[in-house]
Amino acid sequence: DTFTFTLDGIEVRLHGASEELIKTIEELLKRDIRWEELEKWIREWEK
């Protein structure tokens, strides 16, 4: 599955994202998160 969203005018596609990761990103997007914050968060998630 591919999860697609737009952040700061950039279309982002995550391939093979888990349901948990998708739900977490959706929550972060509701908080009007900035790209830099999401990028940092995703790097931490990957560890």
Score class of each variant (00 low, 15 high):
S18T: 15
W41D: 02
L38A: 03
V12R: 04
E44F: 03
I22S: 02
I33T: 06
L29R: 02
T4H: 11
R34G: 11
I22P: 00
L14C: 03
R34N: 10
E36Q: 12
F3V: 04
E11W: 05
S18H: 06
E37D: 11
E19I: 14
I22W: 03
E27I: 12
L7G: 00
I25E: 00
L21A: 09
T2Y: 14
A17C: 08
T4G: 07
T6K: 06
E44M: 02
W45D: 02
R13S: 15
L28C: 10
D1R: 14
I25H: 00
T2E: 13
L7E: 01
I33S: 04
W41L: 14
E27G: 10
D32V: 05
E19Y: 11
T4V: 13
W41V: 15
G9I: 02
L7Y: 12
I25F: 03
T24A: 15
I10L: 08
L7K: 04
D1V: 13
K47M: 15
L21K: 03
L28P: 00
F5C: 03
W41M: 14
R31C: 04
V12L: 06
I25D: 00
L21I: 14
I10M: 09
T2K: 05
E26A: 07
L21W: 06
G16H: 11
W45G: 02
F5D: 00
L7R: 01
T24Y: 09
I10T: 07
V12F: 13
T4M: 09
W35Q: 03
L14W: 05
E44I: 03
A17W: 09
W35D: 01
L29D: 01
T6F: 13
E37N: 06
E26K: 15
K40D: 07
K47S: 15
D8F: 04
L7C: 06
H15G: 06
S18C: 04
R34V: 09
I10W: 05
H15C: 13
D8I: 02
L28K: 07
K40T: 10
L38Y: 11
E37T: 10
V12P: 00
L28R: 04
T6H: 10
V12Q: 02
E37I: 07
D8R: 01
I42T: 01
E26V: 13
H15S: 12
G16E: 06
L7D: 01
E20K: 09
E11T: 13
I42H: 01
E20P: 06
K47W: 12
I33L: 08
D1C: 13
L29M: 06
L29Q: 02
T24P: 00
R13A: 14
F5N: 01
E11C: 12
T2F: 11
V12G: 02
L38G: 01
W45C: 09
I33H: 03
W45H: 06
E37S: 07
W41H: 12
E19F: 13
